[in-house]
Write a protein that binds this DNA or RNA. Structure first.
Lengths: 206, 206
DNA sequence: GTCTATATACAGATAGAC
DNA sequence: GTCTATCTGTATATAGAC
């Protein structure tokens, strides 16, 4: 592997971490260069602008999201997949308490500024939303699926914000329990395949 | 009222709006001075530092929060108060879609930086959380009240973030309906006063 | 109390030697 | 491809006349 790729990767990784920790605007190119052990002036050989680095970081996040969904999809039924999603939300809580959700934080910050970076960040949350909706649809919730997905992602993002605000991982633990119970009650008697019968059951429960 | 107070008030109001729109770090003193129609150099007569302006803005938000709670408390029973809170979340949604939640945004941004400003911003969300918990406690939910409050505030903050991220007020409308239905089912058969009977009912429902 | 001019620091970005 | 030195703009903050 040529050093070119190596440095590029290092810069993206450094930027990814620092942007999560300090936010995009508060992260300087000097910060990134230092963290990646690359001289400041050399950064511009790999990225024309700071925005280009932001773009690369979000693309990296998108790849990680895809891998994450693949992992979740290994669960045999959609209900277990959604449960896994909630479970993963209780990992790395020290990081979440310190710096909040890496994706939610980007959407919040960049959303105010508009532009293509904001759109790219929003797509990450959109993908998560769509993934959840797919699971609910597979469980037979039909037209209710979008609302259920919205409720779930909303809940997750909200508890991340509170966990960060109060610097208290226990909040996320508590809410994860609540969310899992909600999902359990919601899917009681519902199978993972979409048939006319399960659709009726799901519609009734919802 | 002396002009001194007038300019101070104008600066705080301008800062409040701009910080909501652009975030604290992205709002410059020049921005604030211009918006308040005060010469840049004069700003420092009223506030020693930019942080001092941030402090004043958060204090203003705290006052508005208190007034807001007073308004909500005008409802006769706690259930109606919580319903009102959800209802208020569906007002000014164009603003929320454009700039997100003014308080949530501050907590997110300042939380990463730490310091006293972050603590002050966090206190705003804490007050909201405590207010909600008080309502649930009045409804007889006892020890479940903290979790219910957490769930509610978490949900509200989450949907604000999504509304902002996707620039779509309809999302907040949809989720408000879901939240209200949740609250309705939760409090079915529960009265607004705390007696041993209602406590049992509430505990059972929760 | 008010306001212009400016000091100081640091950000993103570039030039050009190697 | 790499890296030092630096340009340019802009931010917070100050000095000091009025």
């Amino acid at each position: 592997m040529p050093r070119k790729t190596d440095k590029r990767v290092r810069l993206i990784e450094a930027a990814k971490v620092l942007i999560h920790q300090k936010g995009f605007n508060q992260t300087t190119l000097a910060d990134i260069a230092q963290e990646a052990d690359v001289p400041l002036g050399n950064v511009y050989y790999y990225f024309k602008t700071k925005e280009a680095i932001g773009e690369a970081v979000i693309e990296k996040r998108a790849v990680e999201f895809t891998e994450f969904f693949s992992k979740l999809d290994e669960n045999s039924d959609p209900r277990a997949r959604l449960m896994s999603l909630i479970q993963f939300g209780t990992e790395d809580l020290e990081l979440t308490a310190r710096y909040g959700c890496s994706v939610g934080g980007l959407c919040q910050e960049l959303g105010k500024q508009g532009g293509s970076l904001a759109d790219q960040a929003a797509k990450l949350l959109h993908d998560l939303l769509m993934w959840c909706e797919t699971q609910f649809r597979s469980l037979g919730f039909g037209d209710k699926s979008a609302d259920l997905a919205l409720n779930m992602v909303s809940n997750i993002q909200g508890i991340f914000l509170l966990t960060h605000t109060f610097k208290d991982p226990k909040l996320a633990i508590r809410q994860a329990k609540v969310l899992q119970e909600w999902l359990e009650k919601l899917t009681t008697g519902v199978r993972g395949t979409t048939t006319s019968t399960t659709k009726q059951v799901a519609a009734e429960v919802a």
